[in-house]
């Protein structure tokens, strides 16, 4: 479990990105942080692995204060996926996937074998193992990014808009496979997106942030859609999406987490 207690991020110029945040993120589930740009959702995510340092308050992971853990050590124990995949262009796909095991000094042969297994798991042809990132499509690169985050089998995965840079059709299939994968792995996942449809599709719990870095609502997708906490949340869900919202609720009842592709198209 990850918990935020009274966490504030204030930059030297006075900007407050996150304001007195209290948040409990459940283990083994997908928690989505959603909101418009500048709402502090990415800052919140990046404070967990100390890519951004909190100004006030405490963040604990399984009861341990992250401020007490040396950043590289902390980060090697937490998977990290970013929007552009962030693959190293000079390393082959297997070498990219085995980055963290290499940093941890694990046996190279074993980590390469694990890397190939992971490729199959995330739906990549193992024949791509010795290719370079530039030879892969955007969707394939994103899959490698996920495999790389999973390579050292961390209990926690931080994902910062991992599917935003690919086209809608590829995105939908990545989302579906991501849900399938999570069913098997049951990682603690913190997922940042600006896309409310994606949040509703993927999240067990959704934290809606509003500009100024405060939490507008934190609830399950059903509750969120059925009872928006305030006008901001209602607007963010989209006034014109009434019909779709209804359909969502029905779909969610029938088949939890099933696709929004129909609604998207």
């Amino acid at each position: 479990m990850i918990s935020f207690t009274g966490v504030t991020k204030r930059y030297p110029d006075g900007t407050v990105a996150v304001d007195h945040l209290d948040l409990e993120i459940a283990a083994g589930r997908i928690t989505v942080l959603v909101g418009p740009s500048g709402c502090g959702k990415t800052t919140t995510l990046r404070m967990i692995n100390r890519m951004v340092e909190a100004t006030e308050g405490t963040i604990t992971v399984d009861g341990r204060n992250v401020a007490d853990i040396d950043p590289p050590t902390l980060r090697r124990g937490i998977g990290y996926v970013i929007q552009q995949a962030g693959l190293f262009p000079h390393r082959t796909i297997v070498d990219n996937i085995a980055t963290v095991p290499d940093l941890l000094g694990q046996d190279k042969k074993r980590s390469r074998r694990t890397a190939r297994e992971l490729m199959a798991r995330v739906g990549l042809d193992p024949a791509l193992a010795t290719r370079y990132p530039a030879q892969l499509s955007g969707g394939q690169q994103q899959r490698v990014g996920v495999a790389r985050a999973l390579a050292a089998d961390p209990p926690i995965l931080l994902m910062d808009e991992p599917f935003s840079a690919v086209d809608p059709i590829v995105r939908a299939s990545l989302q579906d496979e991501f849900l399938r994968l999570q069913d098997e792995l049951e990682k603690t996942i913190v997922f940042v997106t600006h896309d409310i449809d994606e949040a509703v599709k993927l999240g067990h719990r959704i934290a809606v942030f509003q500009v100024g870095g405060t939490l507008a609502q934190y609830s399950t997708p059903d509750e969120l859609l059925a009872a928006p906490a305030n006008d901001f949340v209602r607007d963010f869900l989209g006034g014109d999406k009434g019909i779709r919202r209804l359909r969502f609720t029905q779909e969610l009842d029938a088949e939890p987490g099933a696709g929004t592709e129909a609604a998207d198209r």
């Binding site: 902390l74 980060r75 990290y80 962030g86 931080l158």
Partner: peptide, 18 residues
């Protein structure tokens, strides 16, 4: 070097020297 490349490297736990 692209900033997101550094971000990924640091986010995976590389030290500055690494």
């Amino acid at each position: 070097v692209e900033p997101w490349l550094r971000d990924a490297a640091e986010g995976m736990g590389m030290t500055g020297r690494q």
